[in-house]
Design a protein around this nucleic acid. Structure first.
Lengths: 145, 145
DNA sequence: CCTTGACATAAAGTTAGGTTTAGGTATTAC
DNA sequence: GTAATACCTAAACCTAACTTTATGTCAAGG
């Protein structure tokens, strides 16, 4: 059993955030001892899932729904599975987008390295959009597709 | 040369967003013809960079700074290169986090697939935290590290 | 016994990044 | 000539996810 201060340290989250999550119903049935929150292993795993679902772009109110399902037993297994399947698809799409972003950033790093070397962008402008060095062209094409 | 409506369609962005970006100084020196914005190839490339930098987590005011640098010539090449280098590091770190998120989601998919098959979580609770099938254990460990 | 520190609540405040509204201009279609 | 479109501005509005503020309780240390 942990106090809110301990959990705050463990997860590197402000105490105010933990209280906010609780108020929003993300820890249904969390124990209390004379008003003071007691975080058990169940709440810690809930927090790990909260961080995961938040990172997947899910809103607090939908995370609350998931936590409610967890308290309703086996009948909600399919709902929960479907939720994770959907979030997985969304994060996979996000990874593809982020890879494109990364390729753009790598291209721009090369671009300015070259511009600094040349002192201007003239040679670069001649190479654009399809006469770049092979490896750079791959980055450019992926970033602009 | 494109109107705001055409650019809105091309980039799938609301017109209001383009006007907001303009107001925030993200298209310095954009041409106008009797009050009406004229987007040239320069503004389209600016928009691609805006989307990239936004996705990297950069704030609008810092994107504005970058656009200002672009109008200041070769002396700001090092600033611009440094910016992209930093954003690249940030996005790479983000990718690692997102991979952990994805592994958690994959684990949970397997978890509920198994729970549905078993009808309960008893067997799963016995396997946790370190007696999972090899492939799943890898996901679980990465997600919880 | 009184101060310090950790906990509690309710309610107001904050922030970024837009979006909407209200009112106006200019061009084209019939 | 009037109706529909596409453009314009300034300013108010919106939203999610926190964060801060004001106020209070309670236990332990000196």
């Amino acid at each position: 059993m942990y106090t809110i201060g301990q959990v705050s340290e463990m997860f590197n989250l402000p105490i105010s955030t933990l209280r906010y999550y609780d108020k929003e119903g993300l820890f249904p049935g969390m124990e209390r001892q004379s008003g003071i929150r007691k975080f058990s292993e169940r709440e810690l795993e809930a927090l790990r899932v909260i961080e995961c679902l938040k990172k997947s772009g899910l809103e607090i109110k939908d995370i609350k729904q998931f936590m409610a399902w967890c308290g309703e037993g086996a009948s909600t297994y399919p709902n929960r599975k479907e939720l994770f399947k959907n979030r997985k698809a969304i994060v996979e799409a996000e990874m593809v987008k982020l890879q494109k972003t990364l390729d753009m950033l790598k291209f721009k790093c090369w671009y300015y390295k070259t511009a600094i070397y040349d002192g201007n962008e003239e040679r670069l402008n001649e190479m654009l959009p399809d006469k770049l060095p092979t490896e750079i062209q791959v980055l450019y094409d992926n970033a602009h597709s």
